[in-house]
């Protein structure tokens, strides 16, 4: 990577030393100084918190999916797991369980009372379903992507 630093917003003088080719090829030796995931993890946490708590269901589902995916991504990047999609799927299953638990705190887990609660727009039940939905999206999505490739590092986006 031979990016120049001329358009760098900060005119720091010592840090922006020209990258020598030798260093670029040997960069594996140095510590990682960039990661795309922290920003995404923070966004996922924020959006899901606002979505679930304020009862804005699209935000809840999207935020949780983003959060689960980015946690899997950052864990993989840090070398804690070799199979990010499996982790994403597992977290999705956890979300489904949490969502079902949320619903179960309000109504018995049977078809009729649940349908009645959804029809009556019970806030907690709907929030529970949004969490279940996010978990399903994450779990199914992870399974599909995992089936398409072997989930290895070399698969590229998003690894």
């Amino acid at each position: 990577m031979d990016e120049t630093t001329s358009d760098d917003p900060s005119p720091r003088t010592w840090d922006d030393e020209p990258e020598s080719p030798a260093r670029t090829s040997a960069e594996e030796e140095g510590p990682t100084r960039t990661s795309v995931w922290p920003l995404v993890v923070a966004m996922g946490l924020t959006v899901s918190e606002v979505g679930v708590f304020m009862g804005v269901y699209p935000l809840a589902v999207g935020g949780l999916v983003l959060f689960v995916a980015s946690v899997a991504g950052i864990t993989h990047e840090a070398g804690y797991t070799g199979r990010p999609w499996r982790l994403a799927g597992a977290l999705g299953v956890v979300l489904v369980a949490v969502g079902v638990w949320m619903v179960s705190t309000q109504v018995p887990l049977a078809v009729d009372p649940v349908v009645a609660a959804v029809g009556g727009a019970d806030g907690i039940v709907l929030r529970g379903f949004s969490v279940v939905g996010a978990g399903l999206v994450a779990a199914v999505g992870a399974a599909v992507v995992s089936a398409m490739g072997d989930g290895d590092v070399d698969d590229g986006f998003p690894a």
Binding site: E3, P9, R33
Partner: peptide
């Protein structure tokens, strides 16, 4: 021993 950083604003969004 920096690994490289991307240029411009992206650097600030991805830095650790």
């Amino acid at each position: 021993g920096h690994a490289e950083k991307p240029a411009g604003i992206v650097r600030w969004f991805t830095t650790v």
